[in-house]
Design a protein around this nucleic acid. Sequence first.
DNA 1: CTGAAAGCGCTTACAG
DNA 2: CTGAAAGCGCTTACAG
Lengths: 328, 328
Amino acid sequence: MSDVARLAGVSTATVSRVVNGRYGVSASTIAQVRSAIEHLGYESSLVATSLRRSRTNVLGLVSHSFQSYTAEVLKGVAEALTQSGFDLIIYANSDLYGTYSEGWERRHLARLSGTLTDGCIVITPSGDMRSNTPIVAIDPVRDSTVPSVTADNLAGGTTVVEHLLALGHRRIAFIAGRSNLEAAWLREEGYRRALASAGVPVDPTLIARGDFNPESAVPLARALMDREDRPTAIFAASDGMALKALEVAKELGLSVPGDLSLAGFDNIPESALCDPGLTTVDQSMYRLGFEAARMLRSLVNGNWEGPHQIVLPIRLVVRGSTAAPRTP
Amino acid sequence: MSDVARLAGVSTATVSRVVNGRYGVSASTIAQVRSAIEHLGYESSLVATSLRRSRTNVLGLVSHSFQSYTAEVLKGVAEALTQSGFDLIIYANSDLYGTYSEGWERRHLARLSGTLTDGCIVITPSGDMRSNTPIVAIDPVRDSTVPSVTADNLAGGTTVVEHLLALGHRRIAFIAGRSNLEAAWLREEGYRRALASAGVPVDPTLIARGDFNPESAVPLARALMDREDRPTAIFAASDGMALKALEVAKELGLSVPGDLSLAGFDNIPESALCDPGLTTVDQSMYRLGFEAARMLRSLVNGNWEGPHQIVLPIRLVVRGSTAAPRTP
DNA sequence: CTGAAAGCGCTTACAG
DNA sequence: CTGAAAGCGCTTACAG
């Protein structure tokens, strides 16, 4: 900027005024500055500007992983921000599948919202976030008070287990997700309620503790499938984990759905591609992202009228991976 | 930071030293500062830090759209950066499907690379980018001199048209992509060469000018399908456009592949889901992203040994949307 | 209409 | 071992 000022023969203050279209600059000066900018190919530094200004018109999104789930959410977020006047910055840390350290999101949120962003979306945070700018959480932790958007995970868990029960399954295992997430807890709760309603007692040994990371499901699925009294169906709390379970079943020479029915949750694109197709719960991650962005936008502008906790409907998607259990 | 300094009874310089783990601070002072940081929940501002420092350990990615293609690329980029010590910032502008303005990427690149990022990946840039930090382009413009990663688009275009020729098609239309992109040009060149090799003259009226934006294909596909001398096959330069053409065909009551064969390019997840499945060229967008990130990382670290233009192999994926033409 | 100066939150020589 | 001061690239009252 100082180069521009020198070339145009004015102060940096004036250059700044021209760049930001402030009133009170003579036409001839504007022309001079413009031509100097053009000549030098000058662009103002986002960083310096945001350090000085309070409003940046940039929204942030913090996510610790970058799998199908996140990609779908992102599409929704981007769509909601189209023509909104807000740009989007996504911050992903390098420690992709690292420990789900409580601190990560909080730290990066703070680093961004200090000055760079006017507000942030946090995907599956590991704790209750706090910031001096608005936040919207997608899939918050349990008992979160932060504005949030989630699918109706309770209904989803119930529906898919009811589907398995209706097929005739009674020994239904569950691979749980990260237990501090509300979504994981409600899916499990749905599982329990559906069983209870059907008068099927919950067998605690059939509940395996995963963490939504697909890899975490591998040993759990193997253990369940190796049992003498193998369950006839497994419901995994995410498609990522269910797909890993499907791989394990193939390794073990189990046919799905012949020997074992398998169901997931999310409906990521891969679930329609695998063989057999995965029965799952569609939670429209796209809409999760879309609604979160819409909410954040209004929150930042101070004109949000809706509720602070949004719950979106789900839909059971039945594919080839579930069928009636083999009669003994 | 000044709050921390005050609470700990030291200068901000000392706080900075503690935060950054610099040598030459007494153990007791470190403890004091640490506890003040803890107490206040202090996090250094990314913006302020990057303004002052030259190296930030943050890599940038600039993209103007956010569709399936981008999402796949992103997964690869994120994977390549895992445990690399680099964080990733993705910048997406709000003007999603706006005009492909030459200026956009250039402007944002400048705004980021000024201080925030140590280097950037640019996806399908609209011009040749220039920056004071390293850049890697995914799908660059023609005759670009910037380091880049692309699929073997020439082979891809040739292969898919050879496939159509082998099925017996002779009137094969082509819906082109953004002509300034090397990828678009090479796909078209592949189309031309395959026809030439087979001794089929190119009919210029069968070449429609799209721009990779799926919507751009709608009127073009309609025009091609409305012709009395309708082509028996259409090859679209991207799956996004091909899928739109498929929709148009359905609207018009044309059966695919009965009345018309359809092929695309990219192999986005949706191409396997549509009905019929889309015959296409798999260019592994994941690997595009992965290789670009690997290259950028080394470029920034100053230890890149490989070539500056990487071309990745492609693979023809035959699905239900192509078949022999109906014999008249 | 324009410039000199202060300051956004940091880091880093330079003194001590 | 620690602090005062300068400066990263901007913007914005405050004078003039």
